[in-house]
Design a protein around this nucleic acid. Structure first.
Length: 526
RNA sequence: GCGUCCGUAGCUCAGCUGGAUAGAGCACCGGUUUGCGGUACCGGCGGUCAGGGAUUCGAAUUCCUUCGGGCGCACCA
C-alpha cells in the first residue's frame, strides 16, 4: 500500500519521499515533512510549498484529501482505493504481504555444539533466526537454513570423557576423579545408561573407546537438539559437520595464499592486516587445527556454494570472532561484506521477580526444553521475537503463563478468535461479505482497516532491517484496535453487517499471516 | 586498558532512514454496554529519554565526551 503511494510520489518529485504514519489519525493516513527540506532549496516558506504540493493532488483518485498543515502534507486515502486494496488482500489469502524479492541467502543459526541440550540463550537465536527465515521466504528470497555441527576438536574428546565418568560415577557407583572441565547434566547419565545396555559396562571403563562413544553420543545429542527445535517449530534444511570438511584442508590453505604464514612451527592467519587485533593461530605446533580452522574451511565451502548473501546468527559472546572470519573470507578471495553477522544478546530469567533456578542436576544452565514446558512454545517464540536481539533481556516466566491481556499472545489470539466467532454467527454468506464495498466507514473502522492493510510493509521493514520485533509489535497494536472496535461497534444484525465482516476478515487475515510468520498458529477458538 | 552492545515511567520493553503532544504492558487507583465471548474496553497516577556539549528550522533519534551496566579480548569451542 505504502509502495503504491510511494511510487506515485516518486514520479512527482523524482526522488524517494519520506512517508510516515502520523500518530494522530485525524491528520490522515500518511504524511510527509518534505516541504521542510525543500524550503531551503526553493527559498520559500515550508507552509507555502506544502500548500502548493497539496493542491496539486486534487485530481488523484488514490486520495480523498491531501492537505497541508503547518508545513506537513497529509494524505488521506480514498475509500475506493482502500476497498480495492482490501479485496486484493483477501483474494491473496495467506500470500498477503508476500513479494517477489530475488536473491539466495544462506542463513546459519543455532549451531550449538552437540555436547548437550539447548539452553535458553540458544532458544533466542533459534527463534530470531527462524523468524527471519519465515519473513525472508515470505518476501520471496530463496533461503537455506543451515546448522553447523562442531563434531571435531576438544569438545568431542571432552564429551567422551564426561560420558564415561558420569556412567562410572552415577551408574556403577565408582568414585572417579573429575577433570577440571567436563560436561554434566541429566542427559549424560541417560546416555550412560544406554551405553551400558548397548555396549556393556566395560565400555565405560575402556579409555580406548572414548572416541567411539563420543561420536555415538554426539549423534544422539544432535537428535535431541533437533527434537527440541521441532518443539518450537524450528526446522533446518541442511546440517554441515565440521569433521567432514577437513579433507578440503590442503586445498583451502593453498587458496589462502599469502593470507597464512608459518612461524615457530605453527600456522597463522594474517587477520591483523584486515582489522583484527592480532594474527591468529590456525594450526598448533602439534598439528591440531584450532576452532578457527574449521570455520575457515566451512566459510570457504559456503562461498563456493555461491549464494548471493550470507547471514550468521551468533551469540553475543562471539562478537570478537567476526573480524577474523571476515579476514579469512577476504584472503580466500571473496567479498566479506556479503557475510552479515547478527548477534543475539544474553538472556536471563526471572520467576516472580526472583532469578529462576533450574534443577541441580542440570547444573546452572537453564534448559530451553524446561522453559517450553513451563510456558509453551508459542509464548516462548512470541517473547523472544518481540525483543530486539541486540539488547540483553530479562523476562519473567510467571507473566507468560497468564491467560489475559497481560500476556500478548493470548490478547492477539483472542482478537482472531473473536472475529471467527462473528463470522460463524453471521447468516451472511461469504459471497455476500466479499462482494460488499467498504464505503461510508466510521473513523474507527477506517483506522482499523488501514492498520490491517499495513502488514506488507511491516513484514518488509522487519526483514530488511533485521528487526523481527516489528511484527509482534504490529500485531499487538492491531489486536488492540480490534478489541476496541469490537467493544464500540455492534456488528451482527446491523445493516452494515456484511461490510464490517469484510473489514474484520482483513484484520483476521493480517493477524493470522503475522502469527504464522512468527511460527505461531492462529486460533479460531480459545 | 581495548573492542562491542546497551542506558527511555517503580518493573519489562517499544519508539532511533532527525519531524506534529515521548508510547505500550505490568504494578497501583477508579470506572464500563442490559450489544455479537468481560480472556474485553475506558480513565487516572507515573518521564531531566543517564549527565554534559555539538550539528539545525527541529534531537530520545546523528556526532563528541563523561558516568553506569552486559558481553568479549585463547594455540577453548
Amino acid at each position: 500500500m505504502k509502495q503504491r503511494v510511494n511510487a506515485l510520489l516518486r514520479d512527482k518529485f523524482n526522488c524517494d519521499v519520506i512517508l510516515e504514519k502520523p500518530k494522530d489519525r485525524s491528520f490522515g493516513h500518511f504524511a510527509t515533512p518534505i516541504a521542510f527540506s525543500l524550503a531551503k532549496e526553493l527559498r520559500k516558506s515550508p507552509m507555502a510549498i506544502a500548500e502548493e504540493i497539496a493542491t496539486s493532488f486534487n485530481e488523484s483518485e488514490m486520495f480523498s484529501a491531501v492537505e497541508s498543515v503547518k508545513g506537513y502534507i497529509n494524505f488521506r486515502l480514498s475509500e475506493s482505493f482502500l476497498d480495492e486494496y482490501a479485496s486484493w488482500a483477501l483474494s491473496h489469502g495467506d500470500q498477503f504481504g508476500s513479494s517477489d524479492k530475488k536473491g539466495s541467502i544462506l542463513l546459519e543459526f543455532v549451531s550449538a555444539n552437540p555436547t548437550g541440550p539447548l539452553h535458553i540463550g540458544h532458544a533466542r537465536g533459534a527463534v530470531y533466526g527462524d523468524t527471519m527465515l519465515r519473513l525472508g521466504r515470505h518476501l520471496g528470497y530463496d533461503i537455506t537454513a543451515e546448522y553447523y555441527v562442531n563434531d571435531a576438536g576438544n569438545q568431542i574428546d571432552l564429551l567422551g570423557v564426561s560420558l564415561q565418568l558420569e556412567g562410572r560415577s552415577s551408574l556403577l557407583g565408582e568414585s572417579v576423579e573429575w577433570p577440571e572441565k567436563y560436561y554434566r547434566g541429566e542427559y549424560l547419565s541417560d546416555l550412560a545408561k544406554e551405553v551400558v545396555t548397548l555396549f556393556g559396562e566395560e565400555a565405560l571403563r575402556d579409555e580406548s573407546r572414548q572416541k567411539e562413544l563420543a561420536l555415538w553420543a554426539k549423534d544422539k545429542i544432535l537428535a535431541l537438539i533437533v527434537e527440541d527445535l521441532a518443539a518450537i517449530n524450528v526446522h533446518f534444511d541442511t546440517f554441515v559437520g565440521e569433521a567432514s570438511l577437513y579433507n578440503e584442508w590442503d586445498r583451502v590453505m593453498a587458496k589462502m595464499g599469502e593470507g597464512v604464514y608459518q612461524n615457530e612451527g605453527k600456522t597463522f592467519i594474517r587477520s591483523s592486516d584486515l582489522g583484527d587485533d592480532h594474527d591468529r593461530v590456525v594450526v598448533r605446533e602439534d598439528g591440531r587445527p584450532t576452532y578457527l580452522a574449521g570455520d575457515i574451511i566451512y566459510h570457504n565451502q559456503k562461498f563456493e556454494r555461491g549464494y548471493d548473501d550470507y547471514i550468521n546468527i551468533w551469540g553475543a559472546d562471539h562478537h570478537g570472532y567476526i573480524a577474523r572470519v571476515k579476514a579469512a573470507i577476504s584472503f580466500l578471495g571473496y567479498d566479506s561484506s556479503k557475510l552479515e553477522v547478527l548477534l543475539s544478546q544474553m538472556v536471563s530469567l526471572l520467576k516472580d521477580g526472583e532469578p529462576f533456578k533450574m534443577s541441580k542436576r542440570a547444573g546452572t544452565v537453564i534448559l530451553m526444553s524446561d522453559v517450553v514446558e513451563e510456558i509453551g512454545a508459542e509464548a516462548l517464540r512470541f517473547m523472544f521475537a518481540s525483543k530486539k536481539c541486540d539488547t540483553a533481556l530479562e523476562f519473567d516466566i510467571e507473566e507468560l503463563k497468564r491467560q489475559d491481556s497481560s500476556n500478548p499472545i493470548y490478547y492477539i489470539q483472542y482478537a482472531h478468535a473473536r472475529i471467527q466467532t462473528l463470522i460463524s454467527k453471521s447468516e451472511k454468506s461469504m459471497d455476500e461479505i466479499m462482494s460488499s464495498h467498504l464505503h461510508g466507514l466510521s473513523a474507527d473502522a477506517d483506522g482499523l482497516l488501514f492498520e490491517a492493510l499495513l502488514l506488507p510493509e511491516i513484514i518488509e521493514d522487519a526483514f530488511e532491517s533485521r528487526q523481527a520485533q516489528k511484527v509482534p509489535d504490529y500485531l499487538k497494536v492491531l489486536a488492540g484496535r480490534l478489541h476496541k472496535f469490537y467493544y464500540d461497534t455492534r456488528i451482527i444484525g446491523t445493516e452494515d453487517e456484511a461490510k464490517l465482516l469484510k473489514l474484520l476478515l482483513v484484520v483476521a487475515l493480517s493477524i493470522k499471516t503475522g502469527l504464522s510468520l512468527l511460527g505461531i498458529q492462529a486460533k479460531d477458538r480459545m
